[in-house]
Simulated scan of single mutants.
Amino acid sequence: MKIVVIGGTGNIGSKLVPQLAQHGHDTVAAAPTTGVNTLTGEGLTDVLAGASVVIDVSNSPSFEDSAVMRFFETSMRNLLAAEAAADVAHHVALSVVGTERLPESGYFQAKVAQEQLIEKSSIPYSIVHATQFFEFVASIADDATAGGTAWLAPVLFQPIAGDDVAQAVGRISTGSPLNGRVDVAGPERFRMDEFFRQALAARNDPREVVTDPHARYFGAELSEGTLVPGSDAILGETRYSDWPGRTAA
């Protein structure tokens, strides 16, 4: 089975492509560096020829509100049109747990728009909502930092290893389309502020973490359950304390 991974050279894509290939699938990594650009449509017709499944794990190069909306809407329309012309049987998209609960954030508004385009298309689909990746701990802390202090809310937080996300997406992509969503998350649940105190300490990061119930997360205020999955979520196996990148600078 031919599977095309849009964003196949990125954080999740670079893990997903070899996993699928090891299971005998004809897997193609598609990205601007390989001549495929969903924003312009370049290379889509050729790369999707004969594809049964398309997995979209791409992300916007800019998180500025108008740019990220333009990226997800334009690239999604181009990709879905090319998939329809190629008779693709299953579209799989990676999104974020809590997307629909964060309307204040321009990024999450754009992810909602992306998902709506998928749901309205004629192509059978599966949308995978993942919690925050372990690999994004540093960037989340940086976004929360002002004046050398990280301000974080004491809300529930259940991050997941990128490898576990890739495994879940791969399994879903080779099954029947869900025509709906599924959540994937890490095996442990924390308080966000406490998690980051421990995570930054493990990296020898001197920043103080201050608990602030009104601290913003990429522009949005969080409630207790905004970032955690439903009770039927698929759980990864990797604990943060066992993750090899935990102490990376």
Rank of each mutant, 00 (worst) to 15 (best):
H90K: 11
T174Y: 09
A82S: 12
A220K: 08
F72V: 01
V128N: 06
N179V: 02
V36C: 07
R171K: 14
E224T: 14
V112M: 07
F190N: 13
F157N: 02
G50C: 04
P229W: 00
N78Y: 02
V112E: 02
F195G: 09
Q167R: 14
S60P: 10
T174E: 13
G175Q: 03
Q167V: 15
R203G: 01
D242L: 11
T145E: 09
A150S: 12
Q109L: 14
A153K: 04
E42L: 06
P159G: 05
L178G: 00
P229H: 04
T33P: 04
Q114Y: 06
S176C: 08
A166Q: 03
R207D: 14
L48P: 02
Y217K: 02
I6F: 06
V47I: 09
D164E: 10
R203I: 06
M192T: 03
V4N: 01
E135I: 08
A86M: 05
A150L: 03
V36M: 02
A67L: 05
I123V: 14
A199V: 09
D163H: 10
D46E: 05
F190A: 05
G43C: 12
V182N: 10
Q198H: 10
P206M: 13
A81E: 09
D232N: 14
A29S: 14
H25K: 12
Q198M: 10
A81S: 15
A153W: 02
L235Y: 14
D163P: 12
V165L: 01
A21N: 07
T247S: 11
S52M: 13
E194W: 15
V155H: 00
A144M: 05
R246Q: 12
A86E: 03
A51E: 08
S66E: 14
S223F: 04
F195W: 12
S173M: 01
N59W: 05
V97T: 04
A67S: 10
A31G: 10
Q132P: 09
R77S: 15
P187D: 14
Q109G: 11
G50E: 10
E208T: 15
R207E: 12
L102S: 04
V28T: 09
T74W: 05
A185D: 11
M69F: 07
T38Y: 00
S52F: 05
T174L: 12
L156H: 07
G8Y: 00
R203F: 04
S122F: 08
P18D: 15
Q114N: 13
I140E: 07
L235A: 12
T34R: 13
E42P: 10
F134M: 06
G147Q: 03
S223D: 13
D143R: 04
N11L: 13
N37V: 07
P103R: 15
G230K: 15
G186N: 08
I3M: 04
T33E: 13
I127D: 08
L117A: 02
Y125A: 08
A141Y: 04
A233M: 06
Q109C: 15
V184M: 00
I6P: 01
S173E: 10
P213I: 03
S231N: 08
R171P: 00
L200I: 05
R181C: 11
A51I: 11
R203C: 13
Q158P: 01
G170V: 01
P18W: 12
K15F: 07
A81K: 11
G148R: 10
